[in-house]
Design a protein around this nucleic acid. Structure first.
Length: 219
DNA sequence: GACCAGGCACATC
DNA sequence: GATGTGCATGGT
């Protein structure tokens, strides 16, 4: 599996889907909120929760910091796991305010590796959430690997079943130019491909990767 | 009514 | 370090 294969996959998907304009959010703070709300959750449910937060004027660091946790939980209820996600939002916002004064520009001024470690120290922020914040809120070249990435690469035998998150991320980061726009669109393309063609229960339709990679196997 | 969705922390071995 | 479990709603 060399560098050319990953670029071939990117070009095939990019030709098929076109520019996807990710992350779907109104500003970087909304991205941060969305990364927590979407943990193991369908995006349609996240949209409902974000709309509810907007309607309550709760889409700012100050508002979330000042909001009672149980009240917050009630508002984000449509996103599921709402008690734990309310706690996670509060801890992320606390970190954001204490370390960077609630300013994305100050957070984004930090070095990628150090910022990633700092984000990972926040309870409720794991590797994927950290990488989404780095890439889509801070515009740092940190590749996001997720369930779709694993399933797509796994089905086409490009990674081992037991590959870790870090190994998958390193695969992309070792073989691609470290460009924010490329990482942004690539992850978006993989999610789009996953949603349309590579769910646990495969959807009908012709996968755009057909003929480019080894035939998909069930996974 | 079962199955699934853009994870994570924590317990246990 | 690997594996198992709880967390929960809404769409198919």
């Amino acid at each position: 599996m060399g560098p050319e294969a990953l670029l071939d996959v990117y070009e095939r998907l990019n030709d098929h889907f076109g520019p996807l304009h990710w992350w779907p959010a109104d500003g970087p703070f909304e991205v941060m909120v969305g990364t927590v709300l979407t943990q193991n959750t369908a995006w349609t449910n996240v949209e409902k929760a974000i709309a509810a937060l907007k309607a309550r004027g709760l889409l700012s660091p100050e508002a979330i910091a000042g909001c009672d946790e149980e009240t917050l939980a009630g508002v984000i209820r449509p996103a599921g796991f709402y008690h734990i996600k309310a706690r996670r939002l509060k801890s992320l916002v606390r970190f954001f305010q204490e370390e960077y004064g609630g300013e994305v520009a100050r957070m984004a001024a930090e070095n990628l590796t150090e910022l990633r470690d700092a984000l990972l120290s926040v309870s409720g922020v794991g590797e994927e959430t950290a990488d989404c914040i780095l890439l889509y809120a801070c515009e740092k070249p940190s590749f996001v690997s997720d369930a779709y990435t694993r399933r797509i690469l796994g089905r086409h035998r490009l990674i081992a079943q037991e590959a870790t998150y870090g190994q998958i991320r390193n695969l992309f980061m070792a073989h691609l130019p470290q460009e924010v726009a490329l990482f942004n669109q690539y992850h978006a393309l993989l999610v789009n491909l996953g949603k349309h063609f590579c769910r646990k229960t495969p959807r009908c339709g012709i996968c755009p990767l057909q003929g480019l990679l080894p035939a998909a196997v069930p996974m």
